[in-house]
Amino acid sequence: MTRFGIEEEFQLLDEDTLVPVPLGSAARAALPSGTGEVKKEFLTSQVEFSTSPVDTLAAAGEELMAFRRALASFAHDRGAVAIGSGTPFGIGPEASVFASERYDTVAHWLGHIVDSHHVNALHLHVEVPDEEDRVRALNAVRPWMPTLLAVSGNSPFADGHDTGHASWRTVIMRRLPLSGCPPHFRDMRHYRSEVDRLVAQQVIPDIASVCWAARLSANYPTVELRLFDAQLSPEDALLLAALGRALVESATSAGDPVHTGDDIQASLWAAARAGLGATLVDPSSGRLIAAKDAVCLLLQTISPALEKSGDLAFVTDGLDRVLRTGTGAQRQRAAYAEGGITALRALHAVASDSEVHDAAGQQ
């Protein structure tokens, strides 16, 4: 089976105000790096966990659950809560950047943008050994990105307010020069030349700063999907991993349909704004389609790959659950409407300690 890896970014918030607190370094020092890897992140209030390269959802789920439980315990002991959300509820003071040569460079590049750049993502790496296959997969993934975003939006709050968006993180990311939909590339040579030109132009400081919603990893032989908000629960994260892996697997054997970047960018905006209530551009026909119908079309498209990996039942159940109970953004809004910060904090705590769905554990 195709190997993949999940990178999850978490933010540590004061349990009473849900404002970021600078506990990232302490968390990295205290938490074990056994299976998977605990890493620094851009802000002092953040910590990142990367799974090992794995080939099953069950293996990824074990690592995600172990880290989330350890992080939740660490936070609780310090009067904090660790959240899996694209943005924190409250911002408070300006963002504090973790001191390092690279992050100092990125902060200088971002300028004033960095002061409110509180964003947390889930990144999915899908291994594709052949570099030209990687380019073809990246091209084929492009038109499906809005559908994936509609399913995964999980950042409705910022600055203590409802933003009116399902993925406010996506809106924040649009301030960066290479956000959203990547261009269509002819081959690997074209990809490399375009990225090198952007670095030479000083649009980005280095190759690692490519911020498209999907890109080719600079360090691994992978297609990297970067459009997902951080997720409430490990079950949510695994659903996105299964969808993303199957889509990349399906794409490597597909042709190279060219969809206009403007169409995809518009659909990404719609998905960020309205989530599963959005109207998107159909990746197959180019006609307008309801996001929920696009989800069904995506499942139909990737079902052969899901069957091959044994993930079809898990993904079918997971999508049914999201369509029935809502995305992370919808669940956060419902909790806040019911009980304010107290209920929102409880939602994050329960999600961090939730069990992975049986279908993932039975692989």
Rank of each mutant, 00 (worst) to 15 (best):
E37H: 09
R324T: 15
L31G: 06
I289R: 10
C296F: 01
F157N: 04
I6R: 04
D262H: 14
A278V: 03
I341A: 04
P156Y: 02
G244D: 02
A26C: 01
L243F: 06
E131I: 12
G361T: 09
E127I: 12
G180Q: 07
H161R: 15
E224Q: 08
G5W: 04
S233N: 05
G5L: 10
D206G: 10
A272K: 00
A230K: 02
N154R: 00
V195Q: 05
P234H: 02
N219S: 15
D206T: 12
I302S: 03
A294C: 06
H125A: 12
R245G: 05
T260K: 12
A359K: 11
L288Q: 13
Y336Q: 11
L238A: 07
A121T: 12
F314R: 12
P156K: 01
F42M: 08
S193H: 11
I341S: 04
D55K: 11
L148S: 00
G255T: 02
A313M: 10
T35Y: 10
G5C: 11
L12V: 11
A294E: 01
S233P: 02
S96R: 14
G277Q: 13
A359Q: 14
G361M: 13
A254T: 07
R345D: 08
H165T: 00
H112K: 11
E249Q: 14
P221V: 07
S233D: 04
A95T: 11
L23G: 05
T17P: 09
H348E: 06
A58G: 15
H357P: 01
Y336L: 11
R245K: 14
E15V: 13
D262V: 15
S250Q: 14
S233T: 12
H165G: 00
D263G: 13
G92Q: 06
E131D: 14
A329Y: 04
T325H: 12
E94H: 15
T87W: 02
S303L: 15
H184D: 07
R245M: 08
S96A: 15
L239M: 10
E7W: 03
R136E: 05
G275A: 02
E9W: 09
G111T: 05
G326C: 06
T252L: 13
S85K: 05
N139W: 03
V119M: 09
Y220M: 11
Q11I: 06
G5M: 09
I204K: 08
P146L: 07
E249K: 07
S233R: 07
S152K: 01
L239Q: 05
A334K: 09
Y336I: 05
S309I: 04
E307D: 13
A241Y: 02
Q265T: 02
H112W: 10
A271Q: 03
F185S: 03
R142Q: 01
D206Y: 09
A72D: 13
I204G: 06
R142D: 06
D55E: 15
D104I: 00
L216Q: 03
G111I: 06
D236W: 04
Y220W: 14
G326Q: 08
L178A: 09
E7P: 08
S209W: 02
E63G: 04
D104C: 00
L122G: 02
H117L: 14
V81Q: 04
R189L: 13
V54E: 12
L225A: 04
K308M: 12
A166V: 00
A254W: 07
Q202N: 07
F42H: 03
R169T: 01
I172E: 02
G79Q: 08
N120W: 03
V223S: 03
L148I: 01
L280V: 05
A29L: 15
L280G: 02
S167K: 05
V258G: 00
V21L: 11
T170R: 00
